[in-house]
Structure formats: C-alpha cells, structure tokens
Design a protein around this nucleic acid. Structure first.
Lengths: 229, 229
DNA sequence: CGCCTTCATTGACCCTGATCAATAAAGCCG
DNA sequence: CGGCTTTATTGATCAGGGTCAATGAAGGCG
C-alpha cells in the first residue's frame, strides 16, 4: 500500500472538513516516505516540486547567508505542512532533525485538489496565518531580546509546543528537546557557547534542571516567564 | 457614498477573480477611512474586529516587549491586507506611518464572504504564503546579519518594494523612504545611532547618496548587493 | 523671519555576546 | 570495557554595537 490515506486521516487539523470520498482521493495522491535524521529534503533556492504533511518526527527550515551562517526560520512538527503550495522554489531548505515520516504530494496535483476543495484551502489559510503570527513573534525575539531572554522564551515555547495536548502538564513532567545545542543557537540567533552558558546559569540559579543533554525540567515557571520578557 | 467599491476594484491582486456582482457585494460591505500619520488602528493583544485593505499610504506592524523595546515585524503597502481573517486578537499593533486610506470590513462579515468565495480565499492564501516567506527571510537578517549587512539589505529591499512596477528603474532615479531613522532601526533590530552611522559610512564610501533625510540614491548596486550578503 | 520642536549625526565609553582555544562529558561500536 | 567521535561546557580575550551625551540640521508655525 503506497498511498497515504491513513496519515491524511490522522491529520484532522487539515482534513476534518473533507468528505470520506474526498479523503480517499487525497489519500491516494500521497506517497508515504521515511526520512532519517539529518537528511535534507529541499534545498534553499531549488525548485520544490512537492508538498508534504508531517506524520512523525521534527524538521527544520533553514535560511543561510552566502558565507554559511545559518538561521532556523521554522520548526515543523507532526501534522504541520511542508512546502509551498502555489509557489515555485523553496526560499529555505528543509531538513529532518529526527527520524521522520512524511506523506508527500506532487505540488501541482495538490494545488489542483486544494483549488477544488475550499474547505481544505481555508484550513491551509488558517494554518498559514497562525504560522505567520508565530514567525512575527519570533522576529521580536531575534531583533530585540537579550541572550537570557531568548533562551527563556525558547524553553517556554518548547514546553508549550511539545505538549501532546494543550494544557498537559509537560512542564511538571519535564520534556525532551528534539534539538542539540547548535540547533538551539541557530533558532535563537546566538552562538552555541552563549546558549550553553545561559542554560548553565539557569540551572545554577535553580530555574531549571538538565538531567541529560536534551531533557529539561522547569522548576520555576514564573521566574522563567519573567525572564522571557 | 460610504461604500468601498472603487477601492476594491482597484485592488486587482485580491479581487481579479471575482465576478462583477460579487465585487459589488464586497464593495458595499466596506467602509472607506482616512487615517493620519502616527495613528494606531489596532493595539497589540486587543480584539481586532476588523480587517482592511490598504489603498494609499504605508503602515507598520509592531511587536513590543513589556519594557517598551519595539520591533517592526511587517510593513504594509497599498493593496496589502491588514488584520487577521479567522483570528481573534491581533498579536501586534498596526499604525500608520504616513497619511493612509483604507477600506475597512467587519471581520465576521468578511470571513463569511471569503468562505463563500474560494477564489478570494485562494488569493488570500497566496498572499499570506508570500508574506510568510518574506518574514522568514527577515528572520535570517535579524538573527545572523551584521549592522552593515542589515542596512544594505534594507536599502535593496526598499528599492525593490517601492518600485511602482517591477523592474522600474527606481534605483537609478533614487527613491524616498517612508521611514525615519528610528523606524529603520526598529525594522532592522538596531539602534538609531548604529543605523545612522552605517548610512553615513555608506555615503562616505560612495555607495549611496542621501540628498535629503528620506531620499536615497543607490550609486553602486553591485557593492550594495555584495555587502548585503 | 526666527523660535521651537523634532529628528539625525557624531563622539566617548562600556558591555554583551562572539571568537578562539582547551577540556570534559556523552554516545557509538568493535 | 576501552578507544574514538561527536557534542557540550568552560575560560580568556576581543570587538561590534549599545548607551549616554552633546551637537547639528530640518521642518513647523505664529
């Protein structure tokens, strides 16, 4: 079974409004694919003939300067969308930062399907607007916040986005970041050293615990919120 | 005549796909409004009961930290859209930075109209995707570029966006920025002093001319491109 | 025209975060 | 387990850009 019905069906955020026959049609258009951590699906500036729906895993969107400095401009979690419907080339590269499972569509085919299904298009619009809001809040962080404010904001955002259900007590149970230190630095517009120092200081001050490289416990949520500004 | 048909009709980017009767209906829903420079239409965090279409003038989208640092997260030119279709509260404030003329719609009414007109919704989706791409390129600038790279990138982007028609030789004729120095600083995540020093240096190096406070001539486009990275 | 306000430029100094370099701790695999 | 690679931490130093302060130039208006 090469189609992608099961993954589409699971993605209720996008497809809740489709009828069963429409769902079936969309599912048949998709192709399931596993990608391994570190693999780059799309390169910045290349033609992007596909869009995809993320089932499992985490991916990053990376923009880079000519001399190799990198900025992560988006983080893609399960049920998020990759690629540029109605677009041509991808303005950033897309790489998996963990094992991931995708449902891939030919862009033209998907665009056509979307054009014929206003409800799907409306869902896409809502998600894109939400993503734009998130990007803009991130611009405030990148342009105006200090290193400590950046790291505190990052931990709070991750505690929120990594919660399986909204309001779940992911904070009290701690959580596991899908990123290494360099990737956190690339998200925050910092160096790996500054990121590490800030985390170490927050642990020393008792705000957080770092039981392993990627695990985080938040001890003092109020102080962290204060710190994030 | 309080309706807004003429301004809607002019906005071909959004409305090119609507039939004449649909256009008329949409035009009747809108209300024309002039706003003066400096006036804030929407406040960050407030409920935003309207969306609007910009006819004339320039507006800024501003996000701010609790202690008052500001970052401009979007610039709104004529034919652009303001507000958050399908959203509730505005995550940033919207202020006019020049005399502006808008066509304002009640959000609920507009949402309903959009839901019934897939072509309009598709246009909105395309614009939102383009805006998201722009925001993400800006994140690279904010997170990873030096002051001189930021200012050079800014001048090039403005030369491009202020061209009346794509490819028009706005560069050779020079152009007038709709921003003061503080606003440029707020766009680039710099201070006004650093912005001023960079511009002065570029003029001293012969890359640009600054015949008046807001006018810019680009003398050496290649060098500026090089500098922008 | 001349006063006054706003906006921009320039200078001196300092601090945050980058850079360079060394060490330490985890993961990986035979 | 022990060697090897990758990733993270820590230290020392430096510089880009922020901060504070003064000056200068434009625009607004009676």
């Amino acid at each position: 079974m090469t189609d992608c019905l099961s993954c589409i069906v699971r993605n209720r955020a996008i497809c809740a409004s489709l009828r069963p026959d429409e769902l079936l049609l969309l599912g048949r258009m998709g192709r399931r694919q596993r990608v391994s951590s570190g693999h780059t699906l799309l390169w910045e500036g290349d033609d992007a003939p596909v869009v995809a729906n993320v089932l499992e895993g985490v991916l990053k969107l990376v923009a880079a300067t000519a001399d190799g400095r990198e900025q992560i401009v988006g983080i893609v979690f399960p049920s998020d969308f990759i690629g540029r419907p109605f677009g041509k080339e991808s303005p950033y590269s897309v790489s998996a930062i963990s094992e991931a499972e995708l449902c891939i569509f030919h862009r033209d085919q998907f665009d056509e399907f979307a054009s014929d299904h206003p409800h799907l298009q409306q869902k896409l619009l809502r998600r894109t607007l939400a993503e734009l809001d998130r990007a803009r809040r991130w611009m405030l962080l990148l342009g105006r916040k200090s290193a400590s404010e950046k790291v505190a904001s990052f931990l709070l955002e991750m505690a929120d986005r990594l919660s399986p259900s909204p309001g779940a007590a992911v904070i009290s149970r701690g959580f596991e970041l899908p990123f290494g230190r360099q990737q956190i630095a690339d998200i925050l517009g910092l160096t790996i050293e500054t990121t590490s120092r800030q985390l170490t200081k927050m642990r020393a001050d008792g705000l957080i615990d770092l039981p392993s490289r990627r695990k985080v416990f938040i001890n003092d949520l109020a102080a962290l919120n204060e710190m994030a500004g």
